[in-house]
């Protein structure tokens, strides 16, 4: 698929001299991170995926602004542009593609599809990123503590992981959705500073984030724990203890920088996983509901128009697939760049 990073390394990043006086005076110090970035940049596919991902993120950030200033109109109903005789199929070729509606209109409602898809990124990506952040945070903290402490703490966290993994996640999700969202909207929103949760979209989004993080952290914790287990045996940890480093310093200054690589890789791979998970949830009817657009609920609506309006059926699917693939390839590229030893 891609050029193995390790082969690139020889050309892009010549190893520095090894002799006792080998380090020449002028070469600036390059951290392992800088070396990895150079490797990443040398990989074309990773860079393309990176640009696509950046574009998606840009769309997610810009859409709310564009909606506010009236450029995008995700839920304005353009009934006049629909062919009511054909059950609401938009007039014109490819689902009503025109200058004012570059991706056409949604059949039935006549909303602008570009606006909806773009704005859906705000919610889908928002949920995926928030979920990833919380997942990684829980996983990293528990992983470091359990790996470093060992013994009883480690065993307890291990049991907790097993318990979480054996939970019937999908059942929980479907069964708990309605009551939990209600609870969030009615009671949690009473708490100080949490008033915004009365908004049904935010409450639904929060529920999805909670479910994703609550069941997503164990693999992160396991990966981090495994890394920490090998790192805590290295002598620089003992050296740090010897100079009197506190526990906090050991965890976050000595250990954490050394597990950044797998954490970063896992994070970049978690984002696309959560984007598709969110889409799947919405598809199942859990999560943010129309008219607020998410990739999942657009997709859910589009399947009923498979033959009548194929453009509407395919476009959301393609956007979702592209987004997920792009983020995944960035994650793969990051893994190759950070660990040139792994071959595929």
């Amino acid at each position: 698929m891609t050029i193995p990073a390790s082969e690139m390394e020889g050309h892009a990043v010549p190893p520095l001299g090894e002799s006792e006086e080998g380090v020449a005076g002028k070469v600036a110090g390059r951290s392992p991170t800088q070396l990895a970035m150079a490797r990443f940049r040398a990989d074309k596919l990773s860079m393309i995926s990176f640009y696509v991902s950046c574009f998606v993120v840009f769309a997610a950030v810009a859409s709310p602004i564009l909606v506010k200033i009236g450029v995008f109109d995700p839920d304005g109903l353009n009934q006049d542009k629909l062919n009511t005789d054909l059950g609401g199929i938009p007039h014109g070729a490819f689902g009503g593609v025109s200058w004012s509606h570059p991706l056409g209109l949604t059949p039935g409602n006549g909303e602008d599809l570009l606006s909806r898809l773009s704005f859906s990124m705000t919610y889908s990506l928002g949920i995926a990123l928030t979920g990833t952040l919380i997942t990684v945070l829980i996983g990293v903290v528990l992983g470091i503590i359990s790996g470093f402490s060992g013994g009883f703490v480690d065993a307890t966290v291990g049991r907790f992981i097993d318990l979480t993994l054996s939970f019937p996640q999908t059942m929980m999700l479907l069964a708990l959705a309605a009551p939990t969202v209600l609870l969030i909207r009615k009671d949690v929103s009473e708490l100080p500073l949490l008033g915004f949760l009365e908004n049904p979209d935010l409450a639904n989004g929060l529920f999805v984030v909670i479910i994703l993080s609550a069941f997503g952290w164990p693999p992160v914790a396991r990966v981090v724990r495994g890394q920490v287990l090998s790192i805590r045996e290295r002598e620089f940890i003992e050296a740090a203890k010897l100079i009197g480093a506190s526990r906090k310093r050991l965890y976050f200054k000595e250990v954490l920088p050394n597990v950044w690589a797998p954490i970063l890789v896992y994070t970049t791979l978690l984002i696309p996983a959560y984007i598709s998970a969110e889409a799947a949830f919405s598809f199942l009817g859990v999560g943010i509901k129309p008219p607020t657009p998410t990739l999942g609920n657009i997709l859910r609506d589009s399947v009923s128009w498979t033959t009548a309006d194929p453009t509407y059926f395919f476009l959301p699917g393609i956007v979702l697939a592209l987004t997920v693939v792009a983020f995944n390839l960035v994650g793969d590229g990051a893994r190759d760049a950070l660990d040139p030893k792994t071959h595929r």
Binding site: R234, G244, N258, W260
Partner: peptide
Amino acid sequence: KPIRRDIQMIFQDPYTSLNPRHT
């Protein structure tokens, strides 16, 4: 902690005794 100042150690393996992520 105060004793740490008076007793220090030099380690056997120069490749694992320095944190690779620190300058």
